[in-house]
């Protein structure tokens, strides 16, 4: 390819932009027109198109696939949400925003929204702090580093349903292992499936168990690209390991932290398998009194228990909006946290 030549000599950024990538395009065009006929001009044009449009064609499969499996359900769900739409019977009458009104007025909606946010906070916040700490520890010179790094990923390999069954049994109200263990040390047993906060803690434990190691590895990868001379300089300035971690490591991996925060926000707000498997029977839907029913479980409840896809879709859209709001909030917060540390460092 002709533009390879230019990459060698010219500015990399310039080479990357499609318009400027052929070697002296003006010259080539002139000479082409002069020496040979239309055939060569056609070739030139093809070559220009190749350079200009190929990148888009190369990345297009993702977007085409996304349009089909992503945008279509999104739009279709919006359509379903304004109809009276039964799971079995299909489309009924157009009802406008009635489904949204029904969902918001449903006593379980607020409960589920609060549960979702509570479980999300109880899982995401400790999870990211623990991931950071774990990644910081893994980033030190450990003997057999690979084994340790593989080790933290082990919980992630176990399917969430299996985790749900195991933890559901551990957290049994009457005969669960955790309550028995509490009994051995003389503590009263906890009603894990009945007490609202206790159930959220139990579910957050499952989520944290599964995701902490995974996030730690992502953060670790980012930490390893932090230039080591920064640490040397800080050490000379007299910063201890903890100070180095908070003032160098964390600010340096800010983009990755933002990524982890946002993905765990999305995952946390969509939590389904863990609370679903935590239920003592499938006939229930997040505890006897919806102690740990989440938004996605409410979607499922509307759609598959009440067999009303209209209300299920309306709930899905409300969840969508909630996630956008919280993800934006998180993004702003994470940026603010980055600038604060930067400011402190400058001082």
């Amino acid at each position: 390819m002709p533009h390879d030549v230019e990459v060698k000599t010219g500015d990399a950024a310039q080479a990357a932009s499609p318009g400027s990538s052929s070697p002296d395009p003006h010259d080539v065009r002139l000479s082409a027109r002069r020496t040979s006929g239309p055939r060569s001009a056609w070739r030139q044009r093809l070559s220009r198109w190749d350079v200009r449009f190929s990148p888009y064609v190369y990345i297009s499969p993702f977007f085409i696939l996304f349009l089909i499996v992503g945008m279509f359900p999104l739009v279709y769900t919006a359509v379903v949400s304004v109809y009276d739409w039964s799971l079995i019977g299909g489309k009924g009458e157009f009802v406008g925003l009635q489904n949204y009104r029904d969902v918001i007025e449903n006593p379980y909606f607020l409960k589920s929204a609060v549960n979702t946010i509570s479980i999300f906070l109880l899982s995401s916040v400790p999870q990211i702090l623990m991931s950071l700490a774990l990644a910081g520890l893994l980033d030190t010179a450990l003997r057999g580093a690979t084994i340790w790094r593989m080790g933290v990923l082990l919980p992630f390999v176990v399917a969430p349903v299996a985790v749900g069954i195991i933890f559901g049994s551990l957290f049994g109200d009457r005969y669960g292992l955790i309550n028995e263990a509490l009994g051995w040390v003389g503590l009263p047993s906890v009603a894990w499936h009945t007490d609202r906060l206790a159930s959220h803690l139990a579910i957050a434990t499952m989520v944290n168990w599964r995701w902490t190691g995974y996030n730690a590895l992502i953060l670790l990868a980012a930490m390893q690209s932090v230039p080591r001379d920064l640490y040397d300089a800080a050490a000379i300035d007299g910063a201890n390991r903890f100070r180095q971690f908070t003032s160098i490591t964390v600010p340096s991996i800010k983009p990755t932290v933002v990524f982890v925060v946002i993905t765990s926000t999305i995952g946390g707000l969509q939590i389904f398998a863990e609370p679903r498997m935590f239920d003592s029977t499938l006939a229930q839907n997040g505890g006897s009194d919806r102690q740990f029913s989440t938004m996605t479980m409410l979607i499922y409840d509307f759609g598959w228990h009440l067999r009303d896809l209209g209300r299920a879709s309306a709930t899905a859209w409300l969840l969508f909006l909630l996630i956008i709001v919280i993800a934006l909030g998180n993004y702003v917060l994470s940026r603010r946290f980055g600038t604060l540390t930067k400011a402190r460092r400058r001082r």
């Binding site: 996304f66 499996v69 992503g70 945008m71 359900p73 999104l74 769900t77 379903v80 969430p160 989520v207 995701w211 995974y214 933002v258 990524f259 946002i262 993905t263 765990s264 999305i266 995952g267 946390g268 707000l269 969509q270 939590i271 389904f272 398998a273 863990e274 996605t296 979607i299 499922y300 759609g303 896809l309 299920a312 879709s313 709930t315 899905a316 859209w317 969840l319 969508f320 996630i323 956008i324 993800a327």
Partner: peptide
């Protein structure tokens, strides 16, 4: 609960879609 994705924005959008796709 889905999590990994290549890029922040795409991660956000595709995961949101999953949530809608559920319904």
């Amino acid at each position: 609960t889905p999590r990994p994705a290549r890029h922040v924005a795409l991660a956000a959008v595709s995961a949101l879609v999953l949530s809608l796709g559920l319904a």
